[in-house]
């Protein structure tokens, strides 16, 4: 991380800590919502952006996490028991879902995960004894931390912010480790990675499992944030939205999900001035954004750098040509 990035990170953190004081409860709610989706899409970014596995079933893990915490809390268990349980359960299911990834690739993998999401949604909707079916689960409590209640929206915001930073830091560490290198090797050229001794099977499974665990944690935070869950936010459509967030933000960029989740969560709210047309504007904006920046928003710096280098190179060339011309 170079000096400029460190400064930027501190500025961002300061903004995130100061912002709530200028926001009313709705703004705070939206900001917390955004953080939850950052956490969820960071997991998806690992699977899709770093390891290059196409996954269209992320919302299923998000849902499994949310339901795990909600059901456990309704059974009288603590949130602090539910959260690791949600993460662990998602990790295991993610591991299991990774197996098809070993058999099939690219679009077929995307289809398989999409099918998994549909199946998970059917269970959430139909098994009323467990999930409350379409009635959902209401009045999910917010946890307390060291005797401090996180019931208020500001407290819960700080809690979510803390969780997001902790897990982002963990992911950062993971990606800097040899594991992270192995993930990108898997994405860029699996055949070469294998010949270099990367355990393709293991890393494919891990990329799914870790990504799923992040979704599970985010789901747990989501359940406590909204305090109500039903199957609707965990459909294939939601998975597709999460995929959209990752791709729009910039897959394979560490901070891509931060921008991507802002596009998916905050942009539609901000576009509400367009009244009935706001989702039309949103959809059109996504199309135009993709055409303009197919590699996502965070490819802008790379693109600027590439342009500058191209300019410098051509300047150097013409300078050299001028020199030669002078000599001639």
């Amino acid at each position: 991380m170079n000096k400029r990035n460190v400064v930027l990170a501190f500025l961002a953190l300061a903004a995130l800590l100061v912002a709530p004081h200028f926001l009313k409860s709705y703004g705070l709610y939206l900001l917390t919502y955004w953080l939850v989706f950052i956490l969820a899409t960071m997991g998806l970014n690992l699977t899709v952006g770093y390891a290059g596995q196409k996954s269209l079933g992320h919302a299923a893990f998000f849902g499994i996490g949310a339901y795990t915490v909600a059901i456990m809390m309704k059974a009288g268990l603590s949130f602090w028991l539910g959260l690791p349980a949600a993460a662990l359960l998602c990790f295991l299911v993610g591991l299991a879902l990774g197996f098809p990834a070993l058999r099939v690739q690219t679009i077929y993998l995307a289809f398989a995960t999409l099918g998994f999401n549909t199946a998970a949604w059917l269970v959430m909707r139909n098994e009323e004894w467990l999930t409350g079916g379409t009635f959902g689960i209401n009045n999910i409590a917010r946890p307390s931390l060291f005797g401090m209640s996180l019931d208020g929206s500001l407290a819960y915001y700080h809690f979510t912010l803390g969780m997001t930073i902790i897990f982002a830091a963990l992911l950062w560490g993971l990606l800097r480790s040899p594991w992270g290198k192995a993930f990108t090797a898997l994405r860029d050229n699996p055949i070469r990675a294998e010949s270099l001794g990367v355990d393709i099977r293991g890393y494919t499974l891990l990329s799914f499992a870790i990504g799923a665990a992040y979704a599970g944690i985010a789901g747990a935070l989501f359940a406590s944030l909204v305090q109500f869950i039903d199957p609707a936010p965990f459909t294939v459509g939601s998975s597709i939205m999460m995929y959209l967030m990752v791709v729009v933000g910039g897959p394979g960029y560490f901070l891509g999900p931060v921008l991507g989740a802002a596009v998916g969560v905050v942009l539609p709210e901000w576009l509400r001035f367009a009244q009935a047309w706001y989702l039309f504007v949103f959809g059109t904006a996504v199309v135009l954004l993709m055409i303009w920046l197919p590699d996502g928003l965070l490819s802008i710096p790379d693109r600027l750098r590439a342009r500058r280098e191209a300019r410098e190179a051509s300047a150097a060339r013409s300078a050299a040509a001028a020199r030669h011309g002078g000599n001639a």
């Binding site: 899709v48 597709i240 939205m241 995929y243 959209l244 791709v247 729009v248 897959p251 009244q275 009935a276 047309w277 989702l279 039309f280 504007v281 949103f282 959809g283 059109t284 904006a285 996504v286 199309v287 954004l289 993709m290 055409i291 197919p294 590699d295």
Partner: peptide
């Protein structure tokens, strides 16, 4: 990836455009 996301955006825009 970009084509998939662009068509997702397109589907949102088309259905909501007709609605509005």
């Amino acid at each position: 990836m970009p084509i998939v996301v662009a068509t997702i955006g397109l589907s949102i825009a088309l259905s909501n455009g007709v609605r509005a």
